[in-house]
Design a binder for these strands. Structure first.
Lengths: 238, 238
DNA sequence: CGCCATAGTGACATATGGTCACTATGGCTG
DNA sequence: CAGCCATAGTGACCATATGTCACTATGGCG
């Protein structure tokens, strides 16, 4: 049998396979806090619980797994986030009551203002502060996935300014530093923080400033491709 | 309908889903070269081409995706490698002629001597030098997956001694350094290389030595958990 | 106008990798 | 068996990046 004959006769459903879904952990920085986007599950299993925005691959609409992740995020937020990266794939026999299932997970970041989530309490989509996560009942292993994403983002905070994608287009250095401090779980030295960003020439200073009770801080925008820059040395993690 | 009723009536095959496979890039260091394990495909599609060791999840035998990766590696090599880590998940409409398919990829490392692959030219399993990869016709997007794994391992060489898992239990520092040099693609300063490993106290010196034409080099073993140690500063990548 | 709060800098200490010449060691060979 | 060779391993100094912290700058407000 040659390959053409094989393909013509191939039955995609010949074997039972694991369920396959795509989920995203979308973070934003809002009111001095890290928030994650949650969606109330409309269907069984875990109906009524909160979970990550995600779903099944639509083999017609999606060309790639990332397409699936972005499509689902767009359905919930109306926009595609400026940062999305694959986090990990979890798969086992017990994570879903329906049996063997696999989820391909993405981490995404967006500015809070760019993402109009209905703030009413009856909404099926809401931002939840990371610090409030323990009072929400999460579906499946989504708690674990969020913890994974948070840990990965912490690592990125140590050697990059990727977290800046969770801020508005224009932001101040103290804002960015505070976000990094939240992720790393430790106060940082502003001198060290500012210096490395300056040396790497990652940000573009605008001529605007923003007052916050003291001396107004300069507003910056990210330079192109500064999201992919990595410092050769990590910030002190201890 | 409550959840129990839903689950009782749930049809896992209600939707067409992407094909799901698990593939591993198993590296070893042998004769001063990096090698990757390839398997000749016995079945369509791409029958006869070489590909990564992998296959479908066996929902009875495997509890997790990593179980699948390890089971397939054990089938080809007889053993489970001492290092295995998820690399990435690739999924799109075109990578497999059968249609939408997803592969969860792992990177694994093993000592060449611990992994008895039949060396005969008719074997269906063989080590291929990374430098010889371009003369082998690889199935699917496996070339791309190997490149991804190599890039990731290069990064690890810059901030950890994870590559040591591709060496025998006892190895010399010049050996380890040469392996890192292959991965990073650049000669390293032996003083820098040795110093950081000493300072982090990652290796246990044995009282054995190995001669290689000059002064015999001390043999070391990895200390427990030195595989998860990360240096706060990267080696110079330029 | 002077205080307050926060932004931003100067200057020095510390830590770690880069460099390279120098020493150490075992095998081989004349 | 002495001396050479090749490779292992070290000493010492340099370069660079972050840590620390006190000091200066700036705008708002009473």
């Amino acid at each position: 049998m040659d390959e053409k004959e094989f393909l013509d006769g191939y039955d995609r459903n010949g074997y039972a396979t694991p369920l396959l879904s795509v989920d995203s952990v979308l973070f934003t920085y809002y009111e001095q806090c890290l928030n994650v986007l949650l969606v109330r599950r409309a269907n069984h299993p875990d109906k009524g619980k909160w979970g990550l925005p995600g779903g099944f691959v639509n083999m017609q609409a999606d060309h790639t797994l990332e397409d699936t992740a972005m499509r689902k995020l767009r359905e919930k937020t109306g926009v595609v986030p400026p940062y999305i990266e694959q986090l990990a794939t979890l798969g086992n026999r017990v994570r879903d009551k329906r049996g063997w299932s696999v989820t391909v997970c993405y981490t995404a970041l967006i500015a809070h203002q760019d993402c109009m989530v209905n703030a009413s309490s009856v909404s099926e989509v809401q931002w939840v502060r990371l610090t409030d996560l323990d009072v929400v009942e999460l579906a499946f292993d989504h708690q674990e996935i969020i913890a994974l994403a948070q840990e990965r983002l912490k690592q990125k905070a140590l050697y990059s300014i990727v977290p800046a994608y969770a801020l508005p287009e224009k932001f101040t250095l103290p804002e960015l530093q505070h976000l990094h401090e939240l992720l790393i779980g430790k106060k940082l030295q502003k001198k060290s923080f500012r210096r490395r960003i300056e040396q790497a020439d990652l940000l573009q200073e605008t001529d605007e400033k923003r007052a916050e009770g003291g001396r107004p801080a300069a507003l910056y925008t990210m330079k192109k491709s500064s999201g992919s820059y990595t410092f050769i040395r990590n910030l002190d993690d201890r």
